[in-house]
Design a protein around this nucleic acid. Structure first.
Lengths: 118, 118
DNA sequence: CATCGTTATTCTTAAATAGGTATAACGATT
DNA sequence: AATCGTTATACCTATTTAAGAATAACGATG
């Protein structure tokens, strides 16, 4: 048997995000961060769970909150537990919106790479 | 007239690329590079036209060629003009493939952000 | 009123990335 | 065999980016 020409297996890949006129608003990472904050009620714990530095987590949230007219996360310091952070109703809406968007995108990708004979 | 609640204008955005089992194969930038090489017949001129360093252009092509079983670009040095580079038939096929893929993606994005009331 | 863990912020360091410079190899053309 | 502009490659430097360390502010709770 002679050597057959191996077809190169190609796959469609990509990333999506949502922008405001001021630039990037949310992508996969930021949405995951919002979800973790919702889960733990804490920026620090959320960051820890994602192996992200608190510093970066705080900056991302600060950026999101300043771009959204209504804050997505409300935080408070001191008191029981040292402080806390909660995802607002707007924040939860955004999570839902992005997840739906991303699901459609993944389906789009899966459709595409079936036609990638090469 | 009281202050009306300004709706935040959101837009869907993203990037796509094609991968092999060894990692990223081509995206928008690499395809554009292939197109410029086809146009000029020279890696250096192609890089110049894209405001890309020759170094980076060469590395990108080297990476693509080593991932593809059949080279996408064939270069030669010396001779008339100092040397040259041509995009192979496989390379041209890949350009067509990616452009079609990307066009569908742009249409997908345009469809999505119509539903972004926020 | 001392403790606690978190939020909020600044400053310094390290790591990753990109870019520039330099130079050899090459072969048609003159 | 000298010239030319390009390919090919190594090496060094700067820029950007991310990470880490340190510290003040905070308020419920005991």
């Amino acid at each position: 048997m002679p050597t057959t020409k191996q077809k190169l297996s190609l796959n469609a890949d990509g990333r999506i995000w949502i922008t405001t006129p001021e630039g990037k608003f949310v992508g996969k990472g930021r949405i995951e961060l919002l979800e973790k904050i919702k889960q733990f009620g804490s920026i620090r714990q959320a960051a820890l769970a994602m192996q992200m530095s608190y510093r970066q987590a705080w900056q991302l949230i600060d950026d999101m909150n300043s771009k959204a007219k209504t804050p997505l996360v409300i935080s408070s310091r001191g008191g029981k537990g040292g402080g806390s952070a909660v995802v607002t109703e707007k924040g939860e809406q955004l999570i839902v919106l992005f997840i739906a968007f991303n699901k459609k995108f993944q389906q789009f990708l899966a459709r595409q790479d079936k036609g990638f004979g090469f």
